[in-house]
Design a protein around this nucleic acid. Sequence first.
DNA 1: GTTAGTCCAATTGTTGGACAATAACAAAGC
DNA 2: GCTTTGTTATTGTCCAACAATTGGACTAAC
Lengths: 245, 245
Amino acid sequence: MDKPLFNRLEKTPAYKVVSDALEQAILQRQIKTGDALPTEENLATQFGVNRSTVREGIRHMEQTGFVQRKGKKLIVSRPSYDLVGHQMSKVLILNDVTFEELWQVKMVLEPLSAQLAATNASDDLINRMAKNIEVMTKALENEEDLVALDIEFHVFIAEAANNQALVMAREALAQLFYPAYQASMFSEVSGQRLLDAHKHIFKAIKNRDPVTAGEWMRKHIIDFKRGYEIAGLDANKPVSNDTRT
Amino acid sequence: MDKPLFNRLEKTPAYKVVSDALEQAILQRQIKTGDALPTEENLATQFGVNRSTVREGIRHMEQTGFVQRKGKKLIVSRPSYDLVGHQMSKVLILNDVTFEELWQVKMVLEPLSAQLAATNASDDLINRMAKNIEVMTKALENEEDLVALDIEFHVFIAEAANNQALVMAREALAQLFYPAYQASMFSEVSGQRLLDAHKHIFKAIKNRDPVTAGEWMRKHIIDFKRGYEIAGLDANKPVSNDTRT
DNA sequence: GTTAGTCCAATTGTTGGACAATAACAAAGC
DNA sequence: GCTTTGTTATTGTCCAACAATTGGACTAAC
């Protein structure tokens, strides 16, 4: 092979240039969140390209949640953690991630959440946790409600932890665990035992006791895996690729 | 405020229908990774829409990495963790994530990596770690090399852990830490101390001793924060939004 | 002054057709 | 066999158009 005298000059397609430019402008806060973008035609003339090209550029960004249609205007917005989580989930599913893998990570993130929550939880969130536990006490029979309440409780804790990186990382996993939650709710390790764990965790958080909070959370997550296995599911198999939104 | 009795009836734009359909087909493995999509015109007729519309749908997907241009063909591909990490980084930056937040998460993920690596590391990766340490021994003077080698070492460990969820979560943080690495390399806590830590961690992994590996990693990460602070940076301020690719 | 009804201009979603550039493929030459 | 040279298919980009929807502006009614 001859030595490459010149490096392949790559011309990035125009639509990509457009989306990159927009992205930069957003990340550098030249356009602030909540602002509306100019009209497509306006952008087209600014960039000196055709409207179709601009549109492709916009579509490119839309997926990530940096811009969003609101009525007819294009609003600059910061992607919700939910959305990013959703995308990460898809990637993990495509890679046949197993329950075990997810659980190992959950096993460190949730206790961390609990610890931080014990330090940082606002009164508001503590109240909402209390409310959650109260409701759960009355819903011990209904599996579906139980799943929803369980998830909510953990979300509260994650929020209380006051750490965005944590919230985001959790989110990606949480969505994939959803099918697992349902499965393990039907096993023996459920209902009352779940509620008890929540109560212990909550008490520790309320008492501003990070160590205990983390410790109980750890036990709780171990229980979760037990439930999964008792339900007859194989932790080393890929999680269900049930792709509901 | 009045309660919303009806939910906004939304008619999804055609380009979104297209991208959703493609996405489903990919997630459900009807189109396998590596396959090429039909031509735009072909897709257009299949969906019964105009080529422009198909294009917008494709752009929508391209961003996430589910499809990729290779030459002129559209290849279905699974997004690299690097890409997803990059996107997560952008979201976190937009939300002014602080060093402290990132570090708290890193503080649990890295030890977990080390533990798992001690259990699962392949011979190949152990060799590469050894090599890395060897090179680092000779590069103690050069800060830039040191940063690169440090990062590489941690990546090896994450890979050795054999856990995709972990790799992905780490990736998002890692990219944001990059500027921090450079900063803390200039502080006192560097060079030799860094190398020593790596050696300890490596030894533990090689000895298949998860506890020690995790413990040393924990110390190592604590050191990292120390270096950041010694360098005069405020851990509670947002990390640099230096948006290099 | 606020609410509801009517109208208009602006903008979007979508279409059809066009064309140059080039990647992919096939044929010809060594 | 392997290069080199056409050919062709497909992409990236543009232009022009149109119906549907939206956001206002303007009016009338309360």
